[in-house]
């Protein structure tokens, strides 16, 4: 297994370099360093001198990929791409174009993002699987039918509707929770309930339908019939055997998401005033802050690769027949 992991990590290096190169090329295809300087210096009284000075201070005065004025390796290393990308491979993200430490910002924002994303993910998963198993238990009854109808209805509604309706009823009309805001510690729980509840509700429709389909496929297998023949109750058949054997497709969809929970949710964090990572990338794109954009894309790629590796590892845990080989 170690050899397999090493191989996967080795593969990750060219992938990350490729992602980095692509991000760099796409960003600078749309924005020039002069555009970035103007975006940061504002619309008023900006002089050519100020733009030049801004680029010098931040190292954007060099050529993007290839520096003809340098000798030897310097042709490649004395460039914006080298300066801005190589340090990132050792997780040194440097500072944003407005001078703030990106690492410090990410550390500060990851916690609040997780505080929303993790309970939403865990509670959502439990609720979805439980509801799906119940629908499977009541398969071919009116409960199954109306449950499926409810799922289709729930998944047909935009997430914005859930948020606005949740805020309207539970905060504005009934005054149960703050409409938005955030606090650390125990006092912060009252800020989390509404976004978590809405996040779970929003995911029920599609989640339950997906898991129900998986379990229905599983329940038709012969080992289930055998379990029943052994006299096991339907509850044990479903929650012990069907669930366990249906884990592989569940893990495929679920484990890969776990590391990316750090990245937060743009809409949820925006509407509920959660100071997370959700809007960090969007804000950076809007303000043409390349340093932040490349750092966030890089972290997203790393987390996704970690998620894929974890998924592979989880197969081994879920199904003893699976072996990871280099």
């Amino acid at each position: 297994m170690m050899a397999y992991l090493l191989r996967r990590l080795f593969y990750a290096v060219p992938i990350l370099l490729g992602v980095n190169l692509l991000t760099f090329a796409l960003f600078f295809m749309v924005n020039t360093p002069d555009d970035m300087a103007r975006a940061h210096l504002g619309a008023k009284h900006v002089t050519a001198d100020a733009i030049r000075q801004w680029k010098v201070e931040r190292g954007y005065d060099k050529p993007l990929f290839f520096n003809n004025s340098e000798q030897g390796l310097g042709k490649l290393t004395d460039t914006v791409f080298y300066d801005k990308s190589v340090r990132m491979l050792v997780l040194d993200f440097g500072v944003s174009d407005d001078g703030r430490s990106i690492g410090a910002e990410i550390r500060q924002r990851a916690g609040p993002s997780l505080m929303i994303a993790l309970p939403t993910f865990v509670v959502g998963l439990l609720v979805n699987i439980t509801c799906a198993l119940l629908l499977v238990f009541f398969r071919a009854t009116w409960l199954d039918f109306w449950g499926a109808v409810a799922c289709v209805a729930l998944m047909s509604i935009s997430s914005l509707f859930y948020i606005i309706a949740g805020q309207f009823f539970m905060s504005k009309l009934w005054h149960w929770f703050p409409i938005s805001g955030f606090a650390f510690g125990v006092d912060g729980l009252r800020f989390l309930f509404l976004p978590v509840l809405i996040g779970v509700l929003y995911g029920i429709g599609s989640g339950v339908r997906w898991y129900r389909t998986l379990f229905l496929e599983e329940i038709a297998r012969e080992y289930v019939r055998t379990a029943r023949a052994k006299g096991l109750s339907e509850r044990l058949v479903l929650f012990r055997h069907v669930l366990r054997n249906g884990l592989i497709p569940i893990l495929t969809g679920v484990v890969v998401v776990i590391p990316t929970l750090f990245m937060g949710s743009l809409i949820m964090e925006s509407f509920f005033g959660i100071p997370g990572l959700g809007s960090y990338t969007i804000d950076a794109i809007n303000s043409q802050d390349f340093a932040v954009v490349r750092a966030m894309v890089f972290i997203g790629s790393v987390l996704y690769i970690v998620g894929l590796v974890l998924t592979d590892l989880s197969y081994v845990w879920a199904d003893p027949r699976v072996r990871l080989q280099a």
């Binding site: 005054h175 703050p178 805001g181 006092d187 729980l189 989390l192 309930f193």
Partner: peptide, 18 residues
């Protein structure tokens, strides 16, 4: 735990107060 937070903040203020 979540519902305990719903009943207002520590000093018994309005539950929807931010």
């Amino acid at each position: 735990v979540l519902l305990s937070g719903c009943g207002g903040n520590a000093s018994g203020g309005l539950p929807n107060s931010p």
